[in-house]
Design a protein around this nucleic acid. Structure first.
Length: 385
DNA sequence: AACCGAAGCAACCGCCCACGA
DNA sequence: ATCGTGGGCGGTTGCTTCGGT
C-alpha cells in the first residue's frame, strides 16, 4: 500500500477546476512567502484545497515560467525523439564492475564476488536506475511541464504515430501488425504438431525489440561503471541525459546539464564519459521486421546486433521494465569489449596494474556462469520485484 | 438551431520512491 | 528503522470545445 492521502478526504476540501480568485490567492501567497510546506500552504494562503492540488496547480499552470500554447513542430519532434530513447520507469541490469561504494542507494545488494584471474576483484552488482521519462523530457523543453507533455503525448502524438504505422511504445513499425501477419505461420506450425517454442521466442523477440533503445542507454551506464577513475569516490548518481548523449554520440550541452533540476549529475571526474565514442547502433534492418521464427536466443541476439556489443544475454533478459520473462537463462556469452585495457586498474585493490597484462574483459572467465546456480530464486524474485 | 458524439485538456487519483529529520 | 514530505508516474475523470448531422 502506498502512503495515506495528503488530505482528509472527508474534510470538505474543494476539488475540480480552480477559480481565478483561488489562483490569485495561491500566486500572491507564493510570491510573498514561497511555497514552503505544501501541506501547510492551503491553510496559510486561505485556500480550501489539498496541498497536493496546490502544488500541481502551481507547477503545471501558475508558475511564471510556464509556456502556454500549442507545441511547435520542433517540440513535437524532440518529444518523440526523447520518448524513443527514454524507456519506462525502471531499468534493472546486471553489471560486472570494479569495487564501488555500495552504500550509495543506486547500487543494490552485493550478490556475487568473482576473483579475476588478474587479481582484480569485480563485484557483480544489480543497478536499479530510476528514469523519470516525462520530467526528463520536460527538462529539454523549457516552459513545458511533465504533465503537459504526457497529456500531449497521450492525446496527440500517440495517435499520430499509430496513424503513421509506428508503434508508440517501441518507435518501430507496429508489431501488432507483424503479429497479425504472422498468425497464419503460427497456425501452420501448430497444425504440423511442432512445439510452441518458436512462437515463445517470437514473444521474447518482440519484448526485446521494444526495449532496444533502453539497452543502448544501459550500454552507456556499463561503460561508466566499469571504468571509474582511480581513487575516486563512488558516484552518488548518474546523469541519465548525459548517458543518453554519450550513447548517441551527440554533443552535450554542459550548461544545460548543470542547470537541470531533476536529474542527478555525474561527479566531475566522470567528465570523460561524455567523450565516449558513439555506440554501434542496432541495425534498423535487423529489428524493423521480425523474422518469422527465432530458433534460439543467441540467434536473436546476433540478429539484433547485441551480441559482442557490451551487453550479455543475461543483461538483456532481466530488465524489470521490459517484463521479467521468468525464464531460466545461462549467461553463456562472449566476453564483451566493455572497457579499455587501462580501465582494468582497480582502485579498490592494492594490486597495481601490470602493463604487460593483456587487455581483458571484466567478464573474462564467466562464460559459463550459471545464474540459476549462483543466485537463488528468492534473490531473483526480490530483485525483479 | 439543436442535438450528439468525439476530441482536447486540466485536474485528480492512487501508488510509488527518494530523501532528510 | 521509521516517518513525513515532496515529487514522480500511469491512468482516469469530467468539463469544454468542436464538428457533423
Amino acid at each position: 500500500m502506498g502512503r495515506s492521502p495528503c488530505c482528509d478526504q472527508d474534510a470538505g476540501v474543494k476539488k475540480g477546476p480552480w477559480t481565478p480568485e483561488e489562483d490569485k490567492l495561491l500566486v500572491d501567497y507564493i510570491k510573498d512567502n514561497g511555497h514552503g510546506s505544501w501541506r501547510r500552504l492551503p491553510k496559510l494562503a486561505g485556500l480550501n484545497r489539498c496541498g497536493k492540488s496546490c502544488r500541481l496547480r502551481w507547477t503545471n499552470y501558475l508558475r511564471p515560467d510556464i509556456k502556454r500554447g500549442r507545441f511547435t513542430d520542433d517540440e513535437e519532434k524532440l518529444i518523440i525523439h526523447l520518448h524513443s530513447i527514454l524507456g519506462n520507469k525502471y531499468v534493472l541490469c546486471l553489471v560486472a564492475c570494479p569495487q564501488l561504494d555500495r552504500s550509495t542507494s543506486y547500487i543494490y545488494t552485493h550478490t556475487h564476488t568473482h576473483t579475476h584471474t588478474h587479481t582484480h576483484t569485480y563485484i557483480f552488482t544489480y543497478i536499479h536506475i530510476c528514469i523519470y521519462r516525462w520530467s526528463s523530457i520536460a527538462t529539454k523543453l523549457p516552459g513545458r511541464t511533465d504533465n503537459e507533455i504526457k497529456n500531449y503525448w497521450n492525446t496527440h502524438l500517440r495517435k499520430k504515430l499509430l496513424g503513421m504505422g509506428i508503434d508508440p511504445v517501441t518507435h518501430r513499425p507496429r508489431t501488432d501488425l507483424n503479429l497479425l501477419a504472422g498468425i497464419p505461420n503460427l497456425l501452420a506450425a501448430a497444425a504440423s504438431s511442432q512445439t510452441t517454442t518458436a512462437s515463445c521466442w517470437d514473444i521474447n523477440a518482440l519484448r526485446l525489440q521494444a526495449d532496444a533503445a533502453k539497452y543502448q542507454l544501459l550500454h552507456g551506464l556499463l561503460r561508466a561503471l566499469a571504468a571509474p577513475p582511480a581513487a575516486a569516490a563512488a558516484p552518488t548518481g548518474v546523469d541519465l541525459m548525459a548517458l543518453l548523449a554519450a550513447t548517441n554520440g551527440g554533443g552535450v550541452d554542459h550548461q544545460l546539464l548543470q542547470g537541470q533540476g531533476t536529474t542527478r549529475l555525474l561527479p566531475s571526474q566522470y567528465d570523460g564519459l561524455l567523450n565516449l565514442p558513439a555506440l554501434t547502433t542496432v541495425p534498423s534492418s535487423a529489428t524493423a521486421t521480425l523474422p518469422p521464427a527465432m530458433s534460439s536466443f543467441s540467434g536473436l541476439l546476433s540478429s539484433s546486433g547485441f551480441a559482442g556489443d557490451g551487453l550479455s544475454s543475461t543483461e538483456l533478459g532481466h530488465s524489470a521494465s521490459g517484463g521479467a520473462s521468468g525464464s531460466s537463462m545461462t549467461a553463456a556469452m562472449a566476453a564483451p569489449p566493455l572497457v579499455a585495457a587501462d580501465d582494468q586498474c582497480n582502485a579498490g585493490t592494492s594490486t597495481p596494474c601490470d602493463d604487460t597484462t593483456p587487455a581483458s574483459s571484466p567478464f573474462e572467465g564467466l562464460e559459463n556462469l550459471n545464474l540459476d546456480d549462483d543466485f537463488n530464486s528468492d534473490t531473483w524474485k526480490d530483485l525483479l520485484e
